[in-house]
Write a protein that binds this DNA or RNA. Sequence first.
DNA 1: CTATAATCGGAGATTATCTCCACTTTCAAA
DNA 2: TTTGAAAGTGGAGATAATCTCCGATTATAG
Lengths: 193, 193
Amino acid sequence: MGPHVTDAKPLRADARRNRDALIAKARELFANNCFNLRFDDFAKLAGVGTGTLYRHFPTREALAEAVYREELAALCDRARELHATLPADKALESFLRGFVTHLHAHEGLARTLATLMATRSDTLAEGAQALHQVIADLLTSAAEAGTIRDDVSAGAVMVALQGICATHDHPSYRTNADQVITLVLAGLHHTAP
Amino acid sequence: MGPHVTDAKPLRADARRNRDALIAKARELFANNCFNLRFDDFAKLAGVGTGTLYRHFPTREALAEAVYREELAALCDRARELHATLPADKALESFLRGFVTHLHAHEGLARTLATLMATRSDTLAEGAQALHQVIADLLTSAAEAGTIRDDVSAGAVMVALQGICATHDHPSYRTNADQVITLVLAGLHHTAP
DNA sequence: CTATAATCGGAGATTATCTCCACTTTCAAA
DNA sequence: TTTGAAAGTGGAGATAATCTCCGATTATAG
């Protein structure tokens, strides 16, 4: 398996303290819809120097990913849980519906995912890859069970999710998102000609 | 009907000359994949002053929209043409397939559309609205003909298109995009329960 | 209690965006 | 033709955001 969080050599005490402070402050700010804050100001508000911020998080996206890493991991866990307790096609439906609902309530996550999915910097997009993986597993199981077609890859579903994330702030986000999921699910059940 | 291009009071000769020079140069640069050029430099390269650039196009997106306005209008025309000559569901399929192919060959348009669709500044997104409209018409016709379900709005299809535009630079863009379209079309044919 | 390696912090260099207004050009009326 | 007012120009420099550098500071192994 690839590198994991737990692989990293332990940070020095002060480094870890600063890193945590940055993430905590960023999470708090994101929760208050402060996304376009000057990057330097994250540092000021978290009580660390600019250099420290840039050392820990070279880009805005890196910070965002750190903030939402747990939340994203939780989503993926839920997918695996559903996968273990339901027929794969039902698990997929339940997961995707829950995904839309969750995003609806967590704007920061939606923004972050939209960026991460678009990012082609493999390291940063670790979160997006995890999501891709659980969806791929669900699709494979369901296809093997014969409940959905087998000629559609997880990437296609990710494109739809990308669209959903990117349109998070539209007035009709919820309606549109639900309908896209409906189309994708119906399309998956419609076995190929 | 709302305001149209032809409504605008005619520009003074020098103003029109500068505006055209800006669009021409921008189109040329976009065609060469120069998207992240300093905004000021568009002006220099087009041989006009910074102020002139900002007066004509207050934002990068406004410039991009002007550059791709015709191309987008052509896409919409094609949709109406198909609508007039084919059963609505076939026209929709043909249009969406063609859309993916066209984007595949026109990165600048893909980038522009991704931005325009995300933009909630109604004036700028005129192009996106036009696209929305032709899709809505196709969906309505097909639904009336009973060839697709009638409980899905154009917004849902736009979300999928948004995802497609946003993932334009993925290595597997083409495969994914084709598959999403397949899912959407299959989903549309699968009448609601 | 060092020695030293890791980390900090923030001044300021760098880069990008956008505004302002003295000057130039157009054009319609005289 | 002039010609005056309105429309438009251009680019220096104000504003703003990003990111780097390195002397000072702090943690930790021995």
